[in-house]
Every structure is written in structure tokens, then in C-alpha cells.
Design a binder for these strands. Structure first.
Lengths: 353, 353
DNA sequence: TTGAAAGCGCTAACAG
DNA sequence: CTGTTAGCGCTTTCAA
């Protein structure tokens, strides 16, 4: 155990904090007693600021400072039935994509006194449903979920909660309430158009479990539809289980090419996988993009490294998080932000396709 | 707005959920009334399971299911004075480092019914202090903070809260309560030893603001001390403001080399910066490691990409988060985990140094 | 094994 | 502008 005599690394000491109350924290009532007012007046000073004389307010503030009072939001939320808690459920923290979204959400919530509470679904809709049920017991003021696909029961729980819900990342579908994201089908189609414009015709796909990463599935759908519109179709696909990663992309491309040596372009489910593919090509002496074109999705920094910048489609992740949170807050104030907000994507030409 | 008639994308409908109670959620009292027992009995079924007849339990469970009851944890936490909330404050979500730690924390907390609540300090100890003060109002059961350096007032608030505190990532210093991490000084010294063993003598450093990233500062300290032990010292350093990133590392190395053309090795504050440096070398035609050796810190996947694998020191980020959360929970159960847990680091030789 | 009473710390609603 | 009253929904404590 750390002794109390331990010196903090800072040279200067903080002004002495009031002694902690016996057996618990300072309450509103103690502050009220010290200030010689009622608890309601203290409560008003803490929130309204209005409807309280400057003189009273000063007395109360002095008492708060003297006692080192910290409000109890559990009690406040219970009494007012407003928690200012926003539940955010993301599929993964395994690459930078959802942390970027979280940063955007946090940036918008924090200055407004709202608190994000995070859950990780591991790309599993049943786990997401269970998380929603658990989180419901905190009586959050709003919800932000990844994707438009959820179990029927999850949708019902959310609708029954009667609070604003923003589904992020995707706009290809019908939102429960509001959606902020981009069209993954369009992103897939965009990359197909690029491959086709380059004269590529023997195209393959490398990805993870499409039953789990539903947005990757939509990108592939858009990609294939664009091919079909030209009378073409995907020559081959390699779907590997497990979390997407460099290693997975590398091994998958190797297997794909072993079975289908004639391919001249491969679309990957995302940038991590594509970079893995690029590594395989470097080590196997496959000329990129001369012999084989490679492309991913997300526009991660990792794609800028390497001898060749990765051809990909960038997603506005931070902005999606920020706008989602803003719309949620607007709704909480009685506003009516758009049901669907398409923030679009950016085609990044790169040097691999 | 989304109409209620909107069809969910799933073919199968969920079993009908009970109609939401007028003006609010179902309460324990309603469940008790339906089951024909007291609220205490329902409460016991929900938590103890013990001290309740199987028959009574079944009645209660049926009532819970029929009403679609969701417990109100605000009320429960207020009454019991135990929230099962763990506040986690990290400096940044800008690269994968802290999301990895968060994954580990979440993996350990979630199955035990604890909930992580996240705050981002932006590498600013004053902002961290403010976050601690704000978060305190949720009366969390424990705290996980990054680093051993905090404002004196932050330390006091934490100590006064009388709940377990785990400081993660670093073990070079005196923890408030418990620490789980690695020695950054040792990590820096380790890389210096590697440079020296390669015969490098004209060494430089590229990093961000050392007053903010205090662990990077400790690594540099360890690096320099190892040089001094051999009668050597750092020839040059380039410190750039702003978040660490590829671009920053690239520009910084360029400036460093312009001012100090004779360097034969550069230590970077982390892998992102180092990869940026490697990019500069590739584009400027500088042979790595022949002409110039480069090394980073963290062991990110990004270092495995590129023609040459980055020489670096890997940190056990996920494991740090996991162990930190485990120690916190142990303490909450009356256990006494070690005050300091050094999880070590892994030297990754790579091909750039 | 079950229940009754009391209260956690705060705020809504109303009164003055 | 300030105070009083009455809970929010749950758990603790104690009694039966």
C-alpha cells in the first residue's frame, strides 16, 4: 500500500482540501446548513444561477468551496429523471476507426456536460442487444450505435425507451430514429468504377466475416453491382474469419492468388487488410499496381506509409461522431435534425490502384 | 422522422414487448404487486438469488418477464452507495495505444458487471484534474488513470475518495495506490544500448511536446542516461508541437537532419513519429539503417508494414488494461494486489536499426 | 424466508 | 427570490 507520507512528484502542494466527512461525502444539506439557506437554494445556485440573489449565491458558493462539496449526480439524475448519459455502442476498438468516432462524440458531448458511456459489441448483434438491455438500467438520455442493423428486440427496446437514437457510420437503410454516416454501397461502387476505368477486369475480393461486418458486406455489394452494370462479375473471393488485420490480409491474398493466379485487381474489406495484401505482394515480388491493383477502405494513416500510398476511400470518422452527438443534443433540446445525414466519403487515388 | 411502420431489416419479428408503462419505466413495486410479494423479495431475486424459495423466485421472475422490467441502477446505486462504475481517464484516442488499453480494461470489467466510463485529458494534467472532479459526481467504485503524474489536487481528490486507483502504463514513480505498466526509462535505455551496440555514436531525438507526453520524456531520459554512462550524449533533438503523427515525424526528421547532417541514428518518441521519419528517408534517398538508423516505441502494427520492419520496443497495452482492471476488482473484494506491477516490454529488433 | 420502515441525496412543484 | 413538501426507485436494517 502507498503510505500517506508519499511525496507527490509535484513540488508545490495543493491548498488543503477540507477533511472528508465522516463515513461519506458532503451533501447538499450540509452546504445549505453552513450557508444558512435551504437545500433548494443551494440546488438552484448549482444549476440555475438565475432566481438567486448575488449575495445569497456568494454565501452558497463560499460554503460549497469550504466544504469541498461534490454534487451526487446519481441522486440528481434519479430525482430529475435526466442522466445526461449517452450510451455509445461500437463493434470494436481493434483499429483506429471507432476510436476516431468516439473522439468526435466526446468532443461534442463533453463541453455540454454530457457523458459518453461505451460498450463494445465485438461485431455481434446479440451481444449488442444484451449490452443495450444492460445499459438501459442507467436510464441514458440518448443512444449512439454503429450501423443500421440490429436485432428486432434491440430496436424495440430502443424505441420503447423514447429517447433519441443515432445510428452512425452507415446511411444505407432505415434508421430507428436518426442516422449519420456514409453510403458504403456507394463507396464500394466508387472503387469498382476506379478499377474498371483502369481496365481491370479480373477482380477479386479479400475480407473478413461478412455476416459480422455488415458495412464491409455493403461495400462489396456496391462493388459487385457496379461490376454487374458493366456485364462483369467478381472472379474470386477469400473470406477469412477473425479480426481484420495486416496478417490476415497478407495470408488471405496469398491464398486467393494461389487459387486464382490471373487476377489483376483485388478489393479489400478495409485498409488494414489491404496493407497486409500489399506486404504479400512486396515479399512475393508481385508488381503493384502493374501486375495487380490493390484497394482498401477507410483512409487510415497506415495507408500513407509504405513505398506506395494505398488507394482507398476515406471515411469522415471524427466528423461522423461529432455530428451524431450534435444531432442527439439538438433533439434533446426539442430540435428536429435530419433523420439521415450523409457525410460522404473521399476517394483517395493512391499508388496501388 | 422514422415511422413506426418501418420494417426492420430482420425477417423474423421479436416476441412482443410489453407496452411501456404510462409516463415511465416499470418499477420494482409494480413487479412486486404482480408477483404478490414485497419489493424486498423482488430485490433479493434480482441480486441474491439466495434466501428466496424457488417457488417465490419463479413467480417473481415471471412477473419481471411479463412486465419487461429493467432495473434502475441510479436508484440502486444511490441506495447501496455502490455504483460499479470505473472511471478511466486516458490522454488521447488519437492512435491505437489507449484504445488497446481500454479493450483490456473492458474485457476484464464487463463480465463482472462493472462499467467503464471514459474521459480524455488531451495530455493536459489540468484538464485531467477537472475531469476527475466532474467524474467524482458519479461516485465511481474505482479509478484508472494513465501515468503517475497528476496535479497535487487531483491526487488529493483521488485519495479522499477512498476508492481503489490504478495508474497505468508507467511504473517509474510512486503510485497513488496501485500502478500497472512498464518502465519507460528502462525502455529508453534499452534502445540506447541497441544503438550503441551497432556502433552508432552521433544520435538525435525526434519527439513531441515533452511537457505533455511525460512517458515519452522518461524514455528520452533513460536513453540519454544510457548514453552518458558511456561518456556520450545526444547530439541533437527536434521537438515539434501538436499531436504525434506520421506527418509530424516526417517533417521533424527533415528539419533535424538539415541542421545536423552527420547523425547516424535517431530515436523517436513513438512508432508513428518513427514511421514518418522512415518515410522521409525513403523519399530523400537516405539509406536505412546503413546511413541512418531509426527506432520508435510501442510496437504498433504500422511498424510491420513498409519495406523494412521498424525497430522498436513493444508495450503490452491490452494486458496492462486487463491487469489494471483485475487488480481494481480484487481490491474491491478486499484483496491486496501488489502496489506496483511491472509488465515489462519487448525489444523488437526490426530492420531500421 | 419474507416484510415493514426508513432513507440514500437530490429536484419538481407549488406556496409564500 | 426563497422555502416546504413530497417523492424519484431502490436497498439497508431490523423484526417477524
Amino acid at each position: 500500500m502507498t503510505e500517506d507520507s508519499t511525496l507527490p512528484p509535484h513540488a508545490d502542494e495543493a491548498p488543503a482540501l477540507p477533511a472528508p466527512a465522516e463515513g461519506g461525502a458532503v451533501t447538499l444539506e450540509e452546504v445549505a446548513a453552513l450557508a444558512g439557506v435551504s437545500t433548494m437554494t443551494v440546488s438552484r445556485v448549482l444549476r440555475d444561477q438565475a432566481h438567486v440573489t448575488a449575495k445569497t449565491r456568494d454565501k452558497v458558493k463560499a460554503a460549497i468551496a469550504e466544504l469541498g462539496y461534490v454534487p451526487n449526480r446519481l441522486a440528481g439524475a434519479l430525482a430529475s429523471a435526466r442522466t445526461r448519459l449517452i450510451v455509445v455502442i461500437v463493434p470494436s476498438l481493434g483499429n483506429i476507426v471507432f476510436p476516431d468516432v468516439l473522439r468526435g462524440i466526446n468532443a461534442a458531448l463533453e463541453p455540454r456536460g454530457f457523458q459518453a458511456v461505451m460498450g463494445i459489441s465485438d461485431y455481434d448483434l446479440d451481444k449488442e442487444e444484451r449490452l443495450i438491455e444492460t445499459m438501459m438500467s442507467w436510464r441514458p438520455s440518448g443512444w449512439i450505435l454503429a450501423g443500421l442493423e440490429h436485432t428486432p428486440r434491440a430496436r424495440q427496446l430502443l424505441k420503447a425507451s423514447r429517447c433519441p437514437v443515432v445510428e452512425v457510420m452507415d446511411v444505407d437503410g432505415e434508421p430507428i430514429d436518426m442516422a449519420v454516416g456514409l453510403s458504403h454501397r456507394a463507396a464500394g461502387a466508387r472503387m469498382a468504377a476506379h478499377f474498371l476505368a483502369q481496365g481491370r477486369r479480373r477482380l477479386g475480393y479479400v475480407g473478413g466475416d461478412l455476416g459480422r461486418d455488415l458495412r464491409a458486406a455493403k461495400r462489396l455489394q456496391g462493388f459487385e453491382q457496379a461490376l454487374q452494370a458493366q456485364g462483369l462479375s467478381l472472379c474470386a473471393r477469400e473470406l477469412a474469419g477473425g479480426a481484420s488485420s495486416l496478417r490476415l490480409g497478407r495470408g488471405s491474398l496469398q491464398r486467393l492468388l494461389a487459387a486464382h493466379p490471373g487476377l489483376d485487381g483485388v478489393y479489400f474489406s478495409n485498409d488494414d487488410m489491404a496493407m497486409g495484401g500489399l506486404m504479400h505482394c512486396l515479399h512475393a515480388g508481385i508488381a503493384v499496381p502493374g501486375q495487380l491493383a490493390l484497394a482498401g477502405f477507410n483512409g487510415l494513416e497506415i495507408g500513407e506509409v509504405a513505398p506506395q500510398r494505398l488507394s482507398t476511400v476515406g471515411s469522415p470518422r471524427y466528423e461522423i461522431g461529432q455530428v451524431a452527438a450534435q444531432h442527439l443534443l439538438q433533439r434533446l433540446e426539442g430540435g428536429q435534425p435530419p433523420a439521415v445525414t450523409d457525410l460522404g466519403f473521399e476517394f483517395i487515388a493512391g499508388e496501388t490502384a
